[in-house]
């Protein structure tokens, strides 16, 4: 027995109640639950409405709302989403941390070069241009009707990059000293933000065309 549109709407509503808003997760979990219910209907010769609660009970531990300091200090997400995003963050952190350490060390090794006015100006132009570009991309994700785990990631990284850019500005105007570290943070976060943005757009375009 194949799930009808009404059956699928029922799953949709359940997932929305569980705050599963990211489209990339939602559509595959909905398909998984529907396939599981269809199989159970066939095996036990029961109807969709009777099989659905049994399947949803199995899903409860994966859809329980949780929060993680690594992802957000105010938002909570289903456990399955938290676990997936955390695994991706581990990959990102394995890239970000070594790059930041390298920048930090370079700041001391090439202290004179970084204090040079022309180098400072160049770094300022680079970090400001990247921040502006991220702001433009942020506008596109903001306008998008679809939210994916990638767009969430992008928005989070965008906020971090802008925060470091503002710290850099404040530091410069208050002390007249330009720091490489804050600029380095913007530069390091940039490729990850671009990756998240592209993955979001790629997924959105795939789904829109269906």
């Amino acid at each position: 027995m194949k799930a009808t549109k009404e059956n699928l709407d029922l799953i949709d509503r359940y997932l929305e109640q569980r705050k599963l808003d990211f489209l990339d997760y939602k559509l595959e979990i909905k398909d998984h639950i529907a396939s599981q219910v269809e199989d159970l209907c066939e095996k036990q010769n029961i109807n969709f409405e009777d099989a659905l609660p049994k399947v949803l009970k199995e899903w409860e531990p994966s859809l329980i709302l949780k929060s993680s300091i690594w992802i957000s200090n105010k938002d909570s997400f289903p456990a399955i989403v938290i676990s997936g995003i955390k695994k991706r963050y581990l990959i990102y952190n394995s890239i970000i941390l070594p790059v930041m350490i390298v920048f930090f060390v370079l700041q001391f090794i090439f202290k004179n070069e970084f204090e040079n006015e022309n180098t400072s100006k160049l770094l300022f132009i680079v970090s400001t241009s990247l921040s502006l570009l991220l702001s433009v991309l942020r506008y596109f994700t903001f306008r998008s009707n679809y939210q994916t785990s990638y767009s969430y990631e992008f928005n989070r990284i965008y906020k971090m990059a802008i925060m470091f850019w503002c710290f850099d500005m404040m530091f410069y105007y208050n002390s007249g000293i330009t720091t490489i570290l804050f600029k380095a943070m913007v530069v390091t976060y940039f490729p990850i933000a671009i990756y998240s943005f592209l993955k979001h757009m790629q997924f959105k375009n795939r789904v829109i065309n269906l």
Partner: peptide, 29 residues
């Protein structure tokens, strides 16, 4: 499912898997 999907998403982020979306039985797969 709690172990499967995070693992699939991690493999995708590592560039080892790619995704295709298709409409099957009234839903996207």
């Amino acid at each position: 499912e709690g172990a499967l999907y995070p693992a699939l998403h991690k493999l995708e982020a590592e560039g080892l898997l790619e995704v295709e979306v298709e409409k099957v039985d009234n839903r996207l797969r």
